[in-house]
Computed example of a mutant assay.
Amino acid sequence: MTPRRATPASSAHDLLTTLGRLTAEALNRAELQKARVDLAVALQSQLLPPALPSGPRWRSAARYAPARDGLDVGGDWYDGFRLPDGALGFSIGDVQGHDVEAAAFMGQIRIALRAVAVTTADPGEALSRANDLLLSMDCDLFATCTFVRFDPATLELADARAGHVPAVWATVDDCCGVDVCGKGLPLGIQPGEVYPVSRRRLTKPGAYVLLTDGVIEGPSFPIEAGLQRVTELVRAGAGGDPDQLAAEVIKVADLTGHSDDAAVLVLRHDATADVAA
């Protein structure tokens, strides 16, 4: 029997059929990825606090920006809450990885920090307890984090870092700097980790700004340059509206290439040590 030869018409039909199948598969994958990203965005928006605490002579504000490509959503968070003794707890952090798993883990860390913060007045101890709690959950992810405890009555600010980028501060008399206190390992790495604590009394009005590395670091933008730019902005806005300052600081992510999600949390204090005494 003579083999059947393909005609130009049948070859074109086969090609179109193959292209149609590949296009349908590509669309399905794109829709699945979009669904995962949309779920991560929705989950994160529900897990971030709807509002931050404020007082008569101090206010807080925050900003969050997802990565430009929409694929790196879910890792960064910020939080602020009142403690039973009248102090305030503030946290900011960055979960390893992205997507739905990172967003869910971020929510677990926020809850863990809130739970342990009411059991100790030491931010380092709070991070240690949160670290051990997360390790007991047997999760493969880890996170960098800064936890701050601010007492409006004494104007003492104490903070501890778990592998996180430093905070930036400035006062209205033009003093400014980067908080380069000691830090421990990220949360979820090693049990029994100890986190050093830095303490200061806010004797002059100013601003204390927490951020994630997505704000200050990019593919071709070194973290030192990002910190310098943020320091300039905090110095200029130390006496102004914290919401506006947070909006200005988050724009630094545009200079870095914005390849990661980014978060900023601002604590603006007007009280002085003499007023509080």
Results as ranks from 00 to 15, higher is better:
residue 18 T to N: 07
residue 21 R to G: 05
residue 21 R to M: 07
residue 22 L to F: 04
residue 25 E to V: 12
residue 26 A to N: 11
residue 26 A to T: 13
residue 33 Q to A: 14
residue 36 R to S: 11
residue 40 A to V: 09
residue 48 L to S: 06
residue 48 L to W: 05
residue 49 P to D: 09
residue 59 R to P: 00
residue 64 Y to F: 15
residue 64 Y to P: 13
residue 67 A to P: 04
residue 69 D to T: 13
residue 73 V to N: 08
residue 75 G to F: 06
residue 78 Y to W: 11
residue 78 Y to H: 12
residue 79 D to R: 02
residue 80 G to Y: 03
residue 85 D to P: 03
residue 88 L to P: 03
residue 88 L to C: 06
residue 93 G to M: 08
residue 93 G to N: 08
residue 107 G to L: 05
residue 108 Q to H: 11
residue 111 I to W: 01
residue 118 V to R: 00
residue 127 L to G: 01
residue 128 S to D: 00
residue 133 L to V: 07
residue 134 L to Y: 01
residue 141 L to Y: 09
residue 142 F to C: 06
residue 144 T to M: 11
residue 145 C to S: 14
residue 147 F to P: 04
residue 150 F to Q: 03
residue 151 D to W: 00
residue 156 E to T: 09
residue 158 A to Y: 01
residue 161 R to E: 02
residue 166 P to T: 05
residue 168 V to N: 07
residue 173 D to R: 04
residue 185 L to A: 09
residue 187 L to E: 03
residue 188 G to I: 12
residue 194 V to W: 02
residue 201 R to I: 03
residue 213 D to E: 11
residue 219 P to C: 14
residue 230 V to D: 04
residue 230 V to S: 07
residue 232 E to L: 14
residue 234 V to T: 03
residue 235 R to D: 13
residue 248 E to Y: 11
residue 252 V to L: 12
residue 254 D to S: 15
residue 258 H to Q: 15
residue 258 H to A: 14
residue 266 V to Q: 02
residue 270 D to W: 02
residue 275 V to D: 12
